[in-house]
């Protein structure tokens, strides 16, 4: 009963057919154009797309990662490659430049959020692990470790947090162009022993 077409008065046939023809033609053209576009881009599509990542070799630890991410707590975290770490007792990534004492006291720590855990392994080695829930990606420890140590601490975008924005907000402000898109199948640029420090 509520058929839109059944009771509609038909417009003059000539007018109707010309407009209809133009419209159909334009639609076919638009569909063809869309098809070409899809074909063109799909040929280049990578299976899983790309994600953002920091090249640790380029990073200069400027601190913008902590503040420029669209997330309230940056998706950039400090990551520790233990195979490179010297397990130093006086870790320059963990302690302030001139610490009062080599213990876990807050006044001695470089990290503003106490996100690095220091645990004794055996004399004289200490292990340092990152608590990513606390880490804000400020790179203070990364600077300390790279300047005076082996450089085993470095920044990485953690993909369990990153929302993979079209244009990473940090990449726009990164002074050294350390952000780049990497294939989704290999989302990390980790430091390994073969890289050296």
């Amino acid at each position: 009963m509520i058929q839109a077409t059944s009771m509609k008065p038909t417009p003059p046939p000539f007018h109707f057919s010309r407009r209809q023809f133009l419209r159909d033609g334009a639609r076919v053209a638009a569909m063809t154009g869309l098809g070409t576009l899809v074909g063109l881009t799909a040929a280049r599509t990578r299976g899983h797309g790309t994600v953002w990542q920091i090249d640790p070799q380029k990073c200069v630890r400027c601190g913008l990662c902590a503040t420029s991410c669209v997330l309230e707590q940056s998706a950039v975290k400090c990551v520790h490659a233990h195979a490179i770490c010297g397990y130093c007792q006086l870790c320059t990534g963990y302690f302030e430049p001139e610490p009062n004492d080599l213990n876990t006291g807050a006044e001695n720590q470089l990290c503003p959020t106490a996100a690095i855990r220091r645990s004794f392994v055996e004399d004289p080695y200490y292990e340092y692990t990152i608590d990513e829930g606390l880490c804000i990606g400020c790179a203070k420890c990364v600077e300390g470790c790279n300047r005076f140590g082996n450089g085993s601490l470095f920044l990485q975008i953690r993909h369990d947090r990153c929302v993979n924005c079209n244009q990473c907000a940090i990449s726009k402000v990164c002074p050294v162009d350390a952000f780049r898109r990497v294939p989704g199948s290999q989302p990390y640029l980790l430091k390994t022993t073969s890289h050296g420090s």
């Binding site: 490659a81 233990h82 292990e127 692990t129 140590g149 082996n150």
Partner: peptide, 17 residues
Amino acid sequence: FRFPPPEFESGHQLPLT
């Protein structure tokens, strides 16, 4: 390395990244 990575006597396993 500035500080050679240690060889642990206690057989401590390095955590993976």
